[in-house]
Design a protein around this nucleic acid. Structure first.
Lengths: 191, 191
DNA sequence: CAACTATGAATGAACG
DNA sequence: CGTTCATTCATAGTTG
């Protein structure tokens, strides 16, 4: 097996980056599976690859920011409000949707219209049972000894819906992670 | 845009190798900055260069040793515990200092006498500073009135001192990474 | 210039 | 989650 380590294809990477840019940080296990399923259209991939990707990307993003802040001069103490870069995430209220429109060449004819929607406290976050999820293994670290899923983020659920991209996205610096992971083909609310 | 990659000057390389030889493997972020600051006297350098240097050097050191071990026949199975080479690192207890004395020609008149001393609490360790972080200056607010330089990382202080190399280094194969990164050259307290 | 080497940079995978 | 490890990519430098 000369391929011990996954390497994202350009399209996979683009999607992942886009999801991250939209504000997704700690995808739930369900989201991970959804993403994995979709990305598998563009190359061999496992859930743990998606999981690790978000973990690493987030970690190194924070590292970079932390380091920048360490080098940053301190402003007025009264001006202490969040020197953190005001990243503008496209987010949505609890029941709205964010549409991500990937205009990839139709190498793969149909991308499944899957909508991920945030619930109150249903789904587990990016932790999962390692025990054979088929070909989509989750990393070992996510499994507790009694089979429970280690989680520290509140819930997500996956639901099929035909709401479509009708909701009204808005901006904030505290993105909630409710978004339509993949578009329903050929619509295209470009951001 | 081919951004040229950093290449250590002979003096920089010598210092890095010396630090490594002294037992430094995973420099903390503070140590990385200290080293970077010092090495910047001998050429353009960034924190990430120092970080990557230690990462790579350690990795390839281990890699080489592992290959050698793979080529060599195994010894007594009872001797399993450490075929690993008993590298003798110069280390020091928590409050002692290791002095590294670099006798470089005075191309640069005064190297800042900076002492890095490990406190009880661990500093955040090296894995940081990725993208563009340019300079190596310490934040101004870190400098206290009594001539000490304080980082925002707990457990570590950068302080000017005149203790000199009086401490007693000793050897072990599990080096703690407390060492005086750079010798007290002349005076020059003000930076 | 090709081929090879040394090594800076990056990142997937995993640890504590 | 921050850190560390292993592997890979990228490229300056060297050799023939």
């Amino acid at each position: 097996m000369p391929r011990p380590r996954w390497s994202p294809t350009p399209q996979q990477l683009m999607i992942l980056q886009d999801l991250y840019r939209k504000g997704l940080r700690n995808p739930t296990s369900t989201q991970v599976q959804t993403i994995t399923t979709h990305l598998s259209l563009y190359g061999k991939i496992q859930c743990k690859n998606v999981f690790y990707w978000f973990q690493n990307h987030k970690a190194r993003d924070r590292q970079k920011l932390r380091k920048e802040m360490l080098h940053q001069k301190q402003k007025n103490p009264s001006d202490h409000h969040d020197d953190a870069p005001q990243l503008q995430f496209i987010t949505a209220p609890n029941n709205s949707i964010i549409n991500l429109d990937y205009n990839f060449p139709p190498l793969y004819p149909h991308s499944p219209p899957i909508l991920v929607h945030q619930a109150e406290r249903k789904d587990t976050s990016s932790a999962q049972m390692m025990n054979n999820m088929g070909n989509v293994d989750f990393p070992k670290q996510c499994v507790t000894e009694n089979g429970m899923i280690r989680t520290n983020v509140q819930g997500w659920v996956l639901m099929m819906t035909d709401m479509g991209p009708n909701s009204i996205p808005y901006c904030s610096n505290r993105p909630i992670e409710t978004l339509e992971l993949f578009p329903i083909k050929a619509t295209g609310i470009k951001e």
